[in-house]
Amino acid sequence: MTTAIKVENVSKTYTRDKMSVPVLNNVSIEIPEGEFVALMGPSGSGKTTLLNLIAGIDRPTGGRVSVQGEDIGTMNESSLAKWRSRNIGFIFQFYNLIPVLTAYENVELPLMLTPLSKAQRKQQVETSLAIVGLADRMKHTPNQLSGGQQQRVAIARAIATDPNIIVADEPTGDLDKKSALEIMTLLERLNKEFGKTIIMVTHDPSAAEHAHIVRHLDKGDLLPEGA
């Protein structure tokens, strides 16, 4: 199986108020294409930081992150932004939908960065919303939707540009059990049916059960598989 993501000896240290705080220590991990990986660990273990580095929204202090063969550490901000728009779909814990936009418009946002025509965009948005089961909620604004529905809109937004990789940071963290299950089932479907590589950060063991691979982090160290 082809390697989708290769993280080699990555470390990350934050500087806050002149104090250095090491968050990741020489972490290495390879994620094959089409895998569904869950990153677990206590708060402050560095799992979100690792996710952010893989997604190209943060830069490592040391080491190298390659995604689909590209060393994203060497890209400048503008190239990295373009790269993210083409390759990464984001799902956040608190959905991060824009409250004044409808579900349709929220999903259309990443498509603003593509050269697609209006008709092509419409098709992409409608398909994405249909996949997440919200074809009948296109005109609704986020405050007219439940938490689970909002997260599904966020998932539709993440897949609208058809990226190969989806990063999800605590996608069920703000949801009840039923909605959380719906979201996890949806992510599983995206992985199985559409071949998306998914890397998910979660605290929730029942969410992690949907992943094929579960890796744990503790105090910035990636624990061996099966630990």
């Binding site: 932004a81 790269w83 993210r84 728009s85 984001f90 991060n96 824009i98 990443p110 937004r157």
Partner: peptide
């Protein structure tokens, strides 16, 4: 601020 950060994450410059 979070919305703009989200937009930047999506690739807006």
């Amino acid at each position: 601020t979070r919305e703009y950060a989200m937009l930047k994450a999506l690739g807006f410059r």
